[in-house]
Design a protein around this nucleic acid. Structure first.
Lengths: 228, 228
DNA sequence: ACCTGAACACCGTTCAAGT
DNA sequence: ACCTGAACACCGTTCAAGT
């Protein structure tokens, strides 16, 4: 029915070559998070498992459970690291520009690990960085003259738009990476069946040309609802 | 670091009591899709596996592979069934109302299987119903006087907003269901750390009060960008 | 105190063999 | 032609035992 192609699993598994043995007593949340991020960076989200993590640190896979309650707890911590990003929250004094920049930071950081985005977005939010970003954005919107209620509504709209956009971009990037590793897999998503669907056909030229510009266009549309 | 609670796995696995033996030669994509949907309806997305599917139809788990290439291909087909929903695309003649109704349909249908939403949204889109909905919405926007480019931009903004919102709602519903099955698990998401974050504290009363109204509020904000 | 190792109860998928 | 069954190469997590 769907022209479902191959899938994004299997061609890369496990972590290669433990770089250095982890001495007894030096395992910590931080060490585990770093190793997990490395595994994801090298092999994508599918390469990450308890056994890969243990292998990378040359430690028994179950040593993990001294430091995290479950794998999902580690994923939540990874999520918050990505949501935080590398840069401080923008504070130029221009509320509109700062808000836009914060959402750009979020998008950019999540897209640095595109195979991770879907994994992270299926977890409930609630990390430190997540709330810090919310507080920052809400403050900016209130500074633009919006009431708490208006600010909340507009922030949620921006955030949900941002998450949907990033999820969609990340899927495309992850699929492209998978295709690259194992060529010959067709991409169905951008051969939409435009016959019989004239309005879709007319839209095709404007799909996915430049995703950053597209992202901004949506932000602008939503921000029209804010006072100048 | 995060107040990560328990997780949504494990308490319900496998399909209970095969309702009737499936005679040789009657297995089909449709039968498999129906059984898969039943498993998800009863036990959530985690309950679905090849072995559960085989068990439910009283058939060897690997018989599946005569009809689908992979599990993900079946997930894509399930996704398109949910995206299609039960009702026909709205066509009252009021473009604005029809567009809103289509997005409500999509939200409603995805939320009927909340544990499935995250699974489905991590797959690339591209099913028949997905494109049909896109074509329908684009036609409505063009009918409101927008150019193909404007219509595409506005539709994508609405769609990404809708997906982000539904993903967020579905996570909350799925977590609530899991909490119900195994009580005592706290919800961190709606105890945001409002101390030290004054603008977040001011927003708390307006979070998650009525998610349908909230959804509509965002749609309205975005639709302000369209001509009256 | 911290880690190991075996074990448990699962996965998705392949392929030779059966009917 | 269609399905079975064993097998492969994995999972996340628990718990008694070791150091």
């Amino acid at each position: 029915m769907t022209a479902a192609d191959d899938d994004e699993q299997a061609p890369r598994r496990g972590a290669p070559a433990p770089p250095q043995r982890t001495p007894r007593g030096t395992l910590s949340r931080e060490v585990l998070l770093d190793a997990a991020m490395e595994i994801v960076r090298i092999g994508g989200a599918d390469a990450f498992s308890m056994r890969a993590l243990g292998g990378r640190l040359d430690v028994d896979p179950t040593a993990f459970y001294r430091h995290f309650r479950t794998k999902n707890e580690l994923l939540d911590a990874l999520a918050d690291i990505l949501i935080e990003g590398d840069e401080p929250l923008p504070a130029t004094g221009n509320a509109r520009a700062d808000l836009r920049a914060s959402l750009h930071q979020l998008r950019h950081s999540l897209l640095r690990h595109p195979t991770m985005a879907a994994v992270i977005l299926r977890r409930p939010p609630g990390g430190r960085a997540y709330w810090a970003r919310a507080n920052h954005a809400l403050g900016l919107l209130r500074g633009m003259g919006l009431s708490p209620e208006e600010a909340t509504a507009l922030y949620q709209t921006l955030l949900f738009y941002c998450l949907g956009h990033v999820l969609s971009e990340a899927r495309a990037v992850a699929a492209a990476v998978a295709r690259d590793r194992r060529p010959g897999t067709p991409t169905s998503t951008f051969n939409p069946p435009a016959h019989q669907l004239p309005d879709l056909a007319a839209a095709v030229p404007f799909l996915r040309s430049d995703t950053l510009t597209q992202f901004d266009t949506g932000l602008d549309l939503i921000m029209r609802a804010a006072p100048a």
